[in-house]
């Protein structure tokens, strides 16, 4: 395919993915808005007012970046995982496989679609948060960069999950048993400075801690971990995950006999 044809194919796939999650918006865009509103009301306003300050900020301001990031992570991941697996299940993935579209375009199309939903939900949650607090932005470009990188990483993760999944249960295992615990333990609701030294060390093994902290640094200017090292780690994960996803696609893992 020439570059123009590749652009058409990629745009087709991205457009199809965006159409999918906007068509079923009550399942994809509405629930995270409602859930996060509950978090803001219960943890931010009701309980947060009794907690006081965290790292020099009121509790609501402290948790908002983490909650936005949590929405971006879960929505990017689950969008690609459910969409690609659904394509696999309905065998409509064959439409792409019989076409001359390169595998990297297929992977990129689904990943961009997942990013679109993750970032879209992130924007919605941010808007909702403005009803509860005045959100400061210390480093706008850094904030944007880290949220885009995080959405990319978890979209690729969702794609790999869908490739190896054999049934719908298999695409909910990782979000429930891996992503949710890691997110809750990734410093969304607390600073790891509050933990004993041992648990601080354990927390440093959690990749989501880095993303949440860099994102929070973008908004508030405070972070538990070095920002540059965190960005480098996220970038390295993206490269490794993309290569793994592409390799699996080339081998036809889960889609070719």
């Amino acid at each position: 395919m020439n570059p123009l044809q590749i652009a058409v194919a990629l745009w087709t796939l991205v457009g199809k993915e965006i159409r999918r999650f906007t068509r079923i918006w009550p399942q994809t865009l509405l629930p995270p808005s409602i859930t996060m509103t509950m978090y803001f009301i219960i943890f931010g306003s009701l309980i947060g007012s009794r907690i006081g300050e965290m790292s020099g900020f009121n509790y609501m301001d402290y948790i908002v970046p983490g909650l936005i990031m949590m929405s971006v992570i879960t929505n990017s991941y689950s969008n690609v995982a459910s969409s690609f697996f659904s394509n696999k299940f309905q065998r409509s993935v064959e439409e792409m496989m019989v076409s001359p579209m390169p595998n990297w375009v297929i992977l990129s199309g689904f990943v961009i679609g997942g990013m679109a939903r993750g970032l879209g939900v992130g924007v919605i949650v941010t808007i909702v948060s403005l009803f509860f607090t005045r959100l400061p932005v210390e480093h706008a470009l850094l904030t944007l960069l880290v949220v885009v990188m995080t959405a990319t990483l978890f979209s690729i993760g969702g794609f790999i999950n869908a490739l190896v999944a054999n049934k719908f249960d298999d695409i909910s295992i990782v979000p429930i048993f891996v992503l949710t615990p890691l997110t809750y333990l990734g410093g969304v609701f607390y600073s790891i400075d509050m933990l004993p030294a041992f648990w601080q060390g354990v927390s440093m093994l959690n990749p989501i801690l880095y993303m949440v902290n860099v994102f929070r640094y973008g908004f508030l200017g405070v972070s538990d971990i070095p920002v540059v090292a965190a960005l480098a780690a996220i970038a390295a994960f993206i490269v490794v995950f993309f290569i793994v996803g592409l390799w699996m696609l080339e081998r036809g893992k889960g889609i070719r006999q």
């Binding site: 044809q5 058409v8 065998r91 064959e94």
Partner: peptide, 28 residues
């Protein structure tokens, strides 16, 4: 290719299925 079993997304509109397939082949 016209396969033995239905292999399109049943929830999509007919014209979207057709247009997408053209797009996969680089047809604007």
């Amino acid at each position: 290719v016209v396969p033995q079993e239905f292999n399109f997304n049943q929830f999509e509109k007919v014209e979207d299925i057709i247009h997408s397939q053209a797009g996969y082949y680089g047809m604007p």
